[in-house]
Write a protein that binds this DNA or RNA. Structure first.
Lengths: 189, 189
DNA sequence: TAATCCACTTGCCATAAGGCAAGAAATGAA
DNA sequence: TTCATTTCTTGCCTTATGGCAAGTGGATTA
């Protein structure tokens, strides 16, 4: 499982512990459009994306989609609140392309989390990194223009621009698809 | 320490464990304007705010302050990345008022974190809650107008409006102080 | 092949928010 | 008290982005 090798990198994890962690995963396929998790459900699984891309989104009060994130290959797709607090989620997690996922059920995850110190540390590192990235995004929403945010996305996550339709990218950047279309036109001159 | 009673609420924590945790804190006072942590430093302490308010901020490329958060009484003030990964922070944490803080050094924190399962769980719950709140803020930046964001802050964190000058609140909301002044005028009619 | 559907573009105009600068009000210091 | 500094407000104009609606082009399906 080369994908899992990439995901679980932490100095405290020994090869035999990694083996135990790898074996806890089961393989699940999703077709484009399938939902890994839907609003109202209580999350019971932890997903690593092995192949493909997932989009997370919420509905705002007008019924519009707001894309909250794109989860790429070799990344983790979970709603931490729903999974760890066992409450209904407000987000949708939908396969943007056909996906292959490595999945661990919550019960099994908790056992690993409490029995393998390095896995616990890895989890804390993952969550703090997520927090940091989200903070960067929030700051970018304040300091950067829509055009600059688009360019950053283009540099840092080119695959998203290739795989996601414009309207999803636009709502992720906090603008309308109309505006993004104009920004793109402007940039290609 | 009534403040700590409020902060450390988790079903797995026994009274004697709580006692151990409480005793790990030392009391540190900060005067208005003092820094708990400055850009470039590696964080070595974990802070609970007992009295007062702290503001965290970054400088953007133009040298402008961007307020990233307000930390109130009974809340935790840390830079998770700098503290847990031992890297220099990019944020400033400054006392907005005179503050009384309960502090734990990183070494001692790590010992507690790994020896008390409930404390570990509490930490995960705290971090996932932070992640959720930050996501809510990001969504609000996309879906709500500046005026709506101001009203939400007013309802949910009235103390911030009382204690922080307008320019800090404005940059937290993602607008200029000029605009916030006009919004406030509009709302008081 | 025609009929849809979806993704994207474009034009026209509306609106929210910014930039700058002047001034008023409040706060703090000497 | 007086002076200085910071905080907040306001006017005038600019700019970024939105809203709506029409139109294009590609893909899918009947």
């Amino acid at each position: 499982m080369p994908v899992l090798q990439l995901i679980y990198q932490h100095p405290l994890l020994t090869p035999s512990q990694l083996e135990t962690i790898f074996e806890a995963h089961t393989l699940v396929d999703f077709k484009k459009g399938d939902y890994l998790l839907k609003k109202g459900q209580v999350s019971n699984s932890y997903f690593c994306i092995g192949e493909g891309m997932v989009r997370s989104y919420v509905h705002d009060f007008n019924g519009n989609d707001i894309t909250t994130g794109f989860i790429e290959k070799n990344e983790i797709a979970i709603d931490v609140i729903s999974l760890f607090h066992q409450v209904p989620t407000v987000e949708y997690f939908q396969a943007l392309t056909d996906c292959t996922c490595y999945v661990i059920d919550l019960d099994k995850f908790q056992v690993l989390y409490h029995s393998i110190k390095g896995f616990n540390e890895w989890g804390r590192a993952w969550m703090s990194k997520s927090l940091f990235q989200l903070k960067q995004r929030t700051i970018s929403m304040i300091t950067d223009s829509a055009s600059e945010r688009y360019k950053s996305l283009q540099e840092q996550h080119p695959r998203i621009l290739q795989q996601a339709p414009l309207k999803f990218i636009a709502s992720y950047l906090g603008i309308t698809d109309t505006s993004l279309s104009r920004i793109r036109k402007e940039l290609t001159r």
